[in-house]
Nucleic acid binder design. Structure first.
Length: 890
RNA sequence: GGGCGAAUAGCGCAGCGGGAGCGCACCUGCCUUACAAGCAGGGGGUCGCAGGUUCAAAUCCUGCUUCGCCCACCA
């Protein structure tokens, strides 16, 4: 391969689709091929088929792909099970909006025709989502793909519903629920978003019946007074005790309602008397049930006032509020109106203000399900990462309330309950033929569907074939890790845990890896209304999927939000290009034909003639393997990626590749040149090979592409092995020595730049090392010379300092001189050395203070004390040298 | 009302008990035959404030300030 074939700028568009096709054709993502290996399983958080994927999905799926590719390379039987979610309300809203554009409603179409439309929608977006995921490079096992509304998942849903019903954990009844008048459906508690809003507290006079006086109540929602059926006071409240049992005349409605006593009332708030509207307030509802009060529904499901609101019937909720206040005012029944901050519930999907009302719905009884789910996490059977989310989960579970699961929608799992005219309710897996009580065949199925999260809750096992006892279920359940955002811990994570425990007797996953949100460059949430969303596909088209992945992973710390910034993407792009060019360098220098075989390096049988730089890079590589593997195990994916980045760019490119040129480009006049060349190439290849493996989970396309150009590869990179830490690659002595060589080079470069010598200009230099390090520097003198453009370079322990020279000190035992009689500004040189001396003396002071402290000497670990002593020694040496130099100059 | 997170270089972030790091931006010099999407060098930080624990604190504890988030049935 020559330079002509591989262009110097990496072009992902030439690589990515071809490489993904290659993986698919090789069937490398399919799990189950290695029955002898332990399984490692991830089940995808199924994206909603409402639309296209956003940056949060890109992050979520990148993280999963990193983990699954890494484990696959480690030899696990890795299964990443993909799928999508029907997303009940969200999808139905989108399709209804779509219909509205054509002037149609779902009711005009009818249930069946509407559902056909939604299925078409689903097909379209499903295709789009799969395409987007594949563009991102995800290594899902597509042969196992599922959908929450497919046949198998539906069977699981019915099974769970019926079994919970039979265990008494699902019930139907009239209770206070959250109603969205816009979506026309009941919602669960967590689908209601509370927002603090500036409202008012209106004080209304309720005249007493049969006696003089009044009782004043305060409310944030005056319109609900039309449905009041009592006024409540605290039983111990002296002000009102004598009124308990009396009646007031409800203004506007002229209905007599009782004054009752209930512990719930806070005497400190407002007037200490509360109007009770059991039909439209959760607390009032409870009080009403305790006292047997009538529940009057004055706000209808459409958000308009009902007939029960008398003269206000048909008015909008908010209009009615204003009218009621005006009418009360006219009658002199408003005592005052205060400003008041309070939380108002909004529909999660459409942000309409939610109306609490009493309605007949299906519920899951939560306490018995929550208990084992609490215990499982407390016992660490499922572990949250980061750990702090454990408390958030537990706190929610411990205070959980029953879950309203019926939705007045069409898109979803129809509730498996049938009603007979005789009043019997049949709950069963399959459509019943006849009523078991009266034998009638006129059974009508419940019109409603289930909360979309009900099916999501079963996802880890429904996707594996449950309720059948499939081989997949046996092998891959429970899964290894769930990767998801903190925003759906309650909606999804918690529910999977209790459903799995209830039906599988086991937690659904060992680890939950929680990540944060991807925000815009200014830290705002990406949203459609703000129009600040960045489309992952656009980034992929402009920069490549590897770049996007790398940007997202390195920007990420567990559980924390990140900002998505253009500059970071460019940094990722630059890195991809760097990788590409480093690889080009190595591959361009390879010999053709049989000679290549000689370049294979067996890490367990290293050649004896490796030089210092070779051993150093092997040592650094080995350290990097250890660090990256460790970080991945800790779910520190960002740190792991950064380690690969640093090793590849700083150690490999900036140093080893540069050092290697001494052997690659040398002319063949000396003996041993060929041997040097081949040894260097074998190391370059070995490290490149290893670093592509480390890189692959993060940047799968470019690494696989380069891999395919490597002369001897075991298999496609996607299914090759993860590098192991090897004792044979440890060379601490050479690594430390090499660090000294690098320091010398840096100091020389630094001195040159002080006087603005162009980097390529060759000038003489002298290195004067102490005896212990002399041999090393002599051996590396040709490299020091090359990399610092010092010519000639003298390494001599007894060298005299030239008269006029720039001087540098490396550690405690090396001095370097740049004799530059013509360019030296003596004053400047003195100032520079004085500044350095000052710094050394400051450091020395601190070190000596520590070493003079009895506490430090006796309490600190010996190695820390030793290190401090060493530091002191070095600083003292440097101080002496600097003083001496300065004296010479002055 | 409870809880959580963040506060570190101009900007974005990592580090979370033993001498402050990364990327971008900035300054200087370089087209040195892998890469100018690059190379070499450099400047820049009392690690939000105040206490405490410790021989030793950016790192642990307490309080406070500012920003953000989550939960909550005081009308």
């Amino acid at each position: 391969m020559s330079k002509k074939i591989i262009p110097p700028a990496y072009d992902p568009s030439q690589v990515e689709s071809r490489r993904y096709q290659f993986w698919l054709e090789g069937d490398y993502f399919r799990a189950g091929k290695r029955a002898d290996r332990p399984p490692f399983t991830i089940v995808i958080p199924p994206p909603n088929v409402t639309g296209s994927l956003h940056m949060g999905h890109a992050l979520d799926n990148t993280l999963q792909d990193v983990l699954i590719r890494w484990r696959r390379m480690q030899g696990y039987d890795a299964l990443w099970l993909p799928g999508t979610d029907h997303a009940g309300i969200a999808t139905q809203i989108r399709v209804e909006e779509h219909l509205a554009a054509e002037g149609l409603t779902r009711h005009q179409l009818g249930r069946e025709a509407f559902l056909e439309k939604v299925w078409e929608w689903k097909e379209t977006y499903h295709r789009q989502i799969v395409n987007q995921l594949q563009r991102l490079g995800v290594s899902c096992d597509w042969s196992r793909e599922r959908f929450t509304l497919d046949e198998g998942c539906s069977r699981a849903v019915r099974k769970v519903f019926v079994d919970l019903y039979r265990r008494g954990l699902i019930y139907r009844g009239n209770y206070m629920i959250n109603w969205c008048p816009r979506c026309n459906t009941a919602l669960s508690d967590i689908e209601v978003e509370h927002q603090e809003e500036a409202g008012t507290l209106t004080y209304i006079r309720y005249p007493l019946v049969d006696r003089e006086g009044e009782i004043v109540v305060a409310t944030t929602r005056p319109e609900t007074m039309l449905g009041d059926t009592a006024v409540a006071v605290h039983p111990d409240d002296e002000r009102y005790r004598h009124l308990v049992g009396a009646k007031v005349l409800l203004p506007l409605m002229n209905r007599e309602i009782p004054i009752i006593a209930d512990e719930y009332v806070d005497p400190e708030f407002g007037t200490g008397a509360v109007k009770i509207t059991p039909g439209h307030d959760p607390n009032d509802f409870e009080i009403g049930r305790r006292h047997g009060l009538e529940e009057i529904q004055v706000v209808g499901e459409d958000g308009l006032m009902t007939a029960a609101a008398g003269p206000y019937a048909g008015m909008d909720r908010l209009e009615c509020r204003a009218q009621v206040v005006a009418d009360l005012e006219a009658q002199g029944l408003i005592q005052k109106v205060e400003e008041h901050q309070h939380a108002v519930g909004h529909c999660q999907r459409c942000h309409t203000v939610v109306e609490p009302l009493v309605s007949q719905q299906w519920f899951v009884k939560m306490k018995p399900l929550a208990e084992p789910a609490i215990k499982a996490v407390q016992e660490g059977r499922t572990v949250f990462i980061p750990e702090r989310f454990t408390r958030i989960y537990l706190n929610w579970m411990e205070n959980i309330r029953d879950w309203c699961i019926s939705r007045q929608l069409w898109w979803g799992h129809r509730i498996p309950a049938w009603y007979c005219s005789c009043g019997e309710i049949v709950v069963d897996y399959d459509t019943p033929e006849r009523c078991p009580r009266c034998g009638g065949s006129e059974l009508v199925q419940d019109e409603d569907v289930l909360d979309t999260w009900f099916s999501s809750a079963l996802w880890p096992f429904s996707t594996m074939g449950w309720p059948d006892e499939t081989p997949d279920l046996k092998r891959y359940f429970p899964t290894s890790v769930l990767v998801t955002g903190y925003d759906i811990i309650f909606f999804w994570v918690a529910r999977m845990i209790f459903m799995s425990l209830a039906f599988m007797g086991e937690v659904p996953f060992r680890h939950v890896y929680i990540h944060g949100l991807v925000r815009d460059a200014l830290g705002r949430k990406m949203s459609k209304s703000l129009g600040n969303g960045v489309d992952p596909l656009e980034v992929i088209e402009a920069y490549g999927a590897d770049t996007l992945r790398f940007t997202l992973v390195t920007g990420q710390a567990p559980g924390n939000d990140q900002r998505f910034r253009q500059e970071n993407v460019e940094a990722g792009r630059n890195f991809a290009n760097k990788i590409w060019n480093a690889s080009r360098f190595v591959l361009m220098n390879l010999p053709e034909g049989a000679e290549r075989e000689q370049l294979i390096l067996d890490p367990d049988r290293l050649p004896e003639h490796l030089n210092r730089a070779d051993r150093w890079i092997l040592h650094r590589f080995n350290e990097t393997v250890a660090a990256v593997t460790e970080q991945l195990e800790q779910y520190e994916l960002g740190e792991a990626a950064r380690h690969v980045y640093e090793f590849l760019w700083n150690d490999f490119c900036d140093w080893y590749v540069e050092l290697s040129k001494a052997y690659l480009y040398r002319q063949g006049e000396e003996p041993g040149v060929e041997r040097d060349r081949n040894r260097t190439l074998s190391i370059l290849l070995f490290v490149l090979d290893g670093v592509m493996r480390l890189l692959h989970p993060f940047m799968p396309f470019i690494s696989e592409e380069i891999w395919q150009h490597m002369p001897f590869r075991e298999a496609p990179l996607v299914v090759s092995s993860w590098p192991e830490v090897r004792e044979a690659l440890r060379f601490p002595k050479e690594a430390a020595e090499m660090a000294r060589v690098q320091e010398v080079i840096r100091v020389l470069r630094n001195l040159r730049s002080q006087v603005q010598l162009p980097p390529g200009r060759r000038v003489p230099a002298v290195v004067r090392p102490d005896e212990e390090i002399r041999a090393c520097l002599e051996e590396e003198s040709h490299q020091i010379s090359r990399l610092s453009f010092s010519e000639p370079l003298t390494v001599d322990s007894r060298a005299e300092k030239p008269d006029k020279a720039l001087t540098g000190i490396v550690g405690k035992d090396i001095e370097v001189y740049l004799p530059l009689a013509g360019v030296i500004d003596l004053e400047k040189e003195i100032r520079r050395l004085e500044k350095e001396l000052k710094q050394v003396q400051q450091d020395l002071q601190r070190t000596q203070k520590k070493l003079n402290s009895q506490g430090f000497l006796s309490q600190a670990p010996p190695e820390v004390v030793a290190k401090e002593r060493q530091r002191q020694e070095e600083l003292l040496a440097r101080q002496d040298k600097l003083t001496e130099l300065l004296n010479g100059l002055r």
